[in-house]
């Protein structure tokens, strides 16, 4: 082959490799803290870039975020990698996954002082550190739904022609959240409640994105989401069309946490990072980047939109052990109730 052809091919190949990210730029920093998290955390509009900048100012290290699809995928990734994982910190599990995460035996006590953490209903755990939270809520379109339900009971028993889109508890965290919410309120009567609610359910989607997509396209006036969802529309889109319905029984909470791996290559840095999560430098990024409630003090008051959000008077949260022990049975119960005619 003529040499100019070889050169052209070679440079073409190099460009292709660069474009696919096959060739990683070498990191010059001496210490690197590897944080596994979910993708939306590290996207350019997520908290990740700001958190990285703030932490790198004080740690003398480089923060390397590794993103997977969501919290459940995070746990799956850890199980796949086992002891050989390169992660120091795992950020983005939620309270219904922590027991399972502990059972992997891959985590170690955080040693973080949780006194600064402020989470409704309180939080204590020697392994995981909370960094934000949100309550599950039915979000509705105020232009098409004049009388939103004021309680879970009203949602269950209301007009079946006013539809809601929910997520599947077999495949998504919000879906599991609703399952636990109904269980918390109805207890043993949960199957009956589901059988009634079934008539109002337009469809059950595999994940939050599909459900919220259907909702914003106007296909259903209600969707299962978070109390903080309206804040996004108010701050980023300047519309208060979408609102969360406050339920008189109370709301189920999702607390997002991070933990330290037993085999972390940079254990000291990792502990430093966990403590940093409860500082304003981290917490300030949460409200308008992760669209969740901060789990500790921020340096400035929250944007006005957050003042208008539903503040649940009662917070439900089942222990992670209880969820881990019953999840399968409750999902089967849900399946039976939802497939009965």
């Amino acid at each position: 082959m003529p040499s100019y052809l070889v050169d052209t091919l070679r440079s073409g190949l190099a460009a292709a490799l660069l474009a696919t990210g096959l060739v990683l730029p070498a990191h010059a920093a001496e210490k690197t803290l590897t944080v596994y998290t979910y993708e939306s955390f590290i996207s350019e509009w997520g908290p990740g870039p700001k958190v990285k900048e703030a932490f790198e100012k004080s740690c003398g290290c480089t923060v390397n975020f590794v993103g997977v699809a969501d919290g459940v995928a995070l746990l799956t990734r850890l199980k796949l990698e086992g002891e050989g994982s390169k992660a120091d910190v795992v950020l983005g599990l939620d309270t219904s996954l922590t027991e399972e995460a502990k059972q992997t035996g891959l985590f170690e006590a955080s040693g973080t002082d949780l006194a600064k953490a402020k989470v409704p209903g309180g939080f204590s755990d020697d392994v995981f550190v909370p960094y934000d939270y949100g309550h599950f809520a039915v979000v509705y379109d105020s232009e098409t739904l004049r009388n939103p339900p004021k309680s879970l009971k009203e949602l269950v028993e209301g007009d079946p022609s006013q539809k809601i889109v929910i997520e599947d508890p077999r495949t998504s965290t919000p879906g599991l959240g609703l399952l636990l919410w109904v269980k918390s309120v109805y207890g043993d009567k949960a199957p009956e409640a589901w059988a009634k609610l079934k008539g109002r359910v337009l469809t059950v989607t595999p994940g939050w994105s599909e459900a919220y997509g259907l909702f914003t396209k106007g296909e259903a006036p209600m969707v299962l989401s978070y109390t903080t969802s309206p804040a996004y529309h108010m701050v980023a889109e300047e519309t208060d069309r979408y609102q969360a319905a406050e339920f008189s029984e109370g709301h189920y909470i999702q607390i997002e946490v991070a933990g330290l791996l037993k085999n972390a290559p940079q254990k000291d840095l990792a502990r430093q990072f966990l403590a940093f999560m409860l500082e304003p430098g981290f917490q300030d990024t949460i409200p308008t980047n992760n669209w969740m409630m901060p789990a500790a003090a921020t340096s400035e008051p929250l944007p006005d939109a957050f003042g208008t959000l539903v503040q649940p008077k009662t917070t439900f949260l089942m222990s992670s052990a209880e969820v881990a022990a019953n999840r399968k049975a409750w999902i089967d119960e849900w399946l039976a109730a939802m497939t009965l005619n």
Binding site: D168, L214, L335
Partner: peptide
């Protein structure tokens, strides 16, 4: 995804799910 989104509920489930 199509089966779950258009199926209307868990009665419509494939092996893939």
């Amino acid at each position: 995804t199509l089966v779950l989104v258009f199926g209307g509920g868990p009665a419509a489930t494939t092996i893939e799910v």
